[in-house]
Design a protein around this nucleic acid. Sequence first.
DNA 1: TTCAAGAGACCGACTGGTTGGTCTGTACAC
DNA 2: GTGTACAGACCAACCAGTCGGTCTCTTGAA
Lengths: 216, 216
Amino acid sequence: MYGKELKLTELRDRIIDHSLKLFEMHGFHGVTVNQIVAESGTSKGGFYHHFQSKDELLYVIHDYFISYVLTKAEEAESSSQNPTEKLKKIIQSFVKVFHLYKPHISVFYQESMYLKPEYTEEIKSKRNAYKNIIFKVLREGIQEGQFRNEISVEITGMSILGMVNWTYKWYHPEGSKTIDEIGDIYVDLILNSLLTDETKKDPRFACYFLKDSHTD
Amino acid sequence: MYGKELKLTELRDRIIDHSLKLFEMHGFHGVTVNQIVAESGTSKGGFYHHFQSKDELLYVIHDYFISYVLTKAEEAESSSQNPTEKLKKIIQSFVKVFHLYKPHISVFYQESMYLKPEYTEEIKSKRNAYKNIIFKVLREGIQEGQFRNEISVEITGMSILGMVNWTYKWYHPEGSKTIDEIGDIYVDLILNSLLTDETKKDPRFACYFLKDSHTD
DNA sequence: TTCAAGAGACCGACTGGTTGGTCTGTACAC
DNA sequence: GTGTACAGACCAACCAGTCGGTCTCTTGAA
């Protein structure tokens, strides 16, 4: 039973892994089902035994990533009372995902428009839930006086999302900065913009900022 | 002679305009040449009279946008000696492009991976040129003591690009904020992070920051 | 002024290759 | 023997691109 369960998902995972690599390189439409099955060491039969269609595979990849990242953000949001700390944790948890799921993310942002209607709704609502967590934290931070009240919650929220999401376009695991360093830089940049002067002076918030010059 | 010239490019422009709309909605691979010609009120023959291939059309759209934006950045870079002012102008000029060329931008960021090899080089080099202008301005700002020296030029540069580029994912001309307001918010956010405390205190730099609370 | 000749702009039926998906068959576990 | 996991030949649809042809405008000789 146990061995059978493992075997049942073995090929499925192999197909997902290899499609991910192929989609990231050539795009969803740049990769054929034949290429996927060749790369995964299986056949058309194997593929269509596990997936109803190529479109379902695209959905599975989308859902895998957004579900993971949404859970992480919900955890970060509920784990702390301090909005600054919450925002930091959300950013860092998201940035860390690049280490594990960069291909998922690339596909998520490049190919989402090709999701078939029957799949879009769920993805869209999770995407919105994620966005709303960020908006909520920003509003809290303003209300509690930690964040400057002249900022626009929506534009600032989208700026943060943009800054962080864009990482998928250029991040390489072998680059000169680790993913944690990049996360720290983002936190420093964002909080430098958001925190009020008074909050910045508070020694309890010093830990959110970079200490030394980074060499490029 | 004059009338002939006008007619020569009329259909070509019509094809570009309509493809842009279709590509933005359904993606490059979600649109067939037959749909393009139907929408443009022409035929296969008309299309292939003006474009060697569907791929060449994609290239033309890419080049149109990146060339425009690169020129604007070069103008901004050479028009002023003050790095803060340069950065502001670059950001604002780019953001303004969303008003005019949002479909170009969407296609540029969504479909660039489908550019055929013979077209990628030129686009890539212009894209790099744009990036390098931002890096250059950041380095200047640090050297002149306007920008904090603990920032990382590359990560910060990519953050700025990400924040601004991401706008194409959510900007609507009918939204609650005009494109100029969005630009001002970006400038405020970025300069709040970049400028040193001393520079921020300098009254000559007050003009770069938002005065009032924005209502959402 | 006229009209023949040619060039460029555009038309649309057709094609050849590709691709997502199906269907029958097989090997093996229980 | 029955159901599950997979194999691989096959198919129908689709789609970028072609090609012979038409229509209009320009040119220039008579």
